[in-house]
């Protein structure tokens, strides 16, 4: 159930990204709050699943198969969404490619792929959809990233750098568009799992909440940030991580 103040009826949300976890729960939460949904991602079952879910809530839903690493394709995808819905109120970027390798072993092509998926895709979508939002004089951009945008991790150079880049994009863009009615915020995720394994249980004791997050627990913050009551909130990085980021 969505609190009245957070309802998204009549709004169009574009959710993007090739990620193992986030498409489905984010689309579910936004659609349940009343938004019509477009999903731009690589043509896989994840894209289809997400769109099916949105449809099952009775909202309009559009699948836009897109190579999200290509600026030209992203622009086409955004144009298509505007063509179908007339506007874009909410953009959620949630690409998440996990590469963890010793720094010296990472090939240039691997490094570039991580940057392309995790950072450049968000950058392209922010520009293409942001242009429309600035014209509308209103918009919400939410970048779903990791707490590793701020913290370091051994063997995580490529991942940390790509996430940190999205965080800095979030902050600089928030200020650049501060007077346009477009807010830009980021959500810092911690450790999440869909169906807990024994390994998860062992690691969970290092999380203050003593458990992994469930993907749907991201959706509720996305809905809050997408709603009309967050005009005064921009450039922020908010954690949904069971307390991880409070560690020394």
């Amino acid at each position: 159930m969505t609190a009245k103040a957070f309802e998204l009826k009549g709004k169009t949300a574009l959710v993007t990204g090739d990620s193992k976890f986030w498409l489905k729960p984010i689309v579910t939460a936004l659609a349940e709050a009343g938004a019509d949904i477009a999903v731009a991602a690589g043509q896989t079952h994840k894209l289809e699943d997400a769109v099916e879910i949105a449809k099952s809530t009775g909202r309009k839903a559009l699948a836009v198969p897109t190579d999200i690493t290509s600026g030209a394709q992203v622009k086409k995808a955004v144009d298509r969404v505007i063509g179908e819905f007339g506007r874009i109120d909410i953009l959620v970027n949630a690409s998440d490619v996990n590469l963890f390798q010793p720094f010296c072993d990472i090939k240039d092509t691997e490094w570039d792929r991580v940057m392309d998926y995790n950072f450049n895709s968000a950058m392209h979508f922010c520009r293409a959809a942001g242009r429309q939002m600035v014209i509308q004089k209103k918009g919400r951009i939410i970048n779903v990233i990791s707490g590793l945008a701020e913290r370091g991790h051994a063997n995580g150079t490529a991942y940390c750098v790509s996430m940190g880049a999205v965080l800095q994009l979030t902050k600089a863009l928030a200020l650049e568009w501060a007077l346009t009615g477009v807010t830009v915020n980021a959500i810092g995720t911690g450790w999440f799992t869909e169906n807990g394994s024994a390994a998860d249980e062992a690691i969970a004791r290092y999380i203050p909440a003593k458990r992994y997050g469930k993907p749907y627990e991201i959706g509720s913050l996305v809905v809050y940030l997408a709603s009309d009551v967050t005009d005064f909130t921009t450039g922020q990085f908010m954690y949904v991580d069971g307390g991880l980021m409070a560690h020394a």
């Binding site: 203050p208 909440a209 627990e217 922020q236 908010m238 949904v240 991580d241 307390g243 980021m245």
Partner: peptide, 10 residues
């Protein structure tokens, strides 16, 4: 699942 987080609204 949110804890220990400062929510900045400024």
């Amino acid at each position: 699942y949110v804890t220990a987080t400062p929510f900045i609204c400024d």
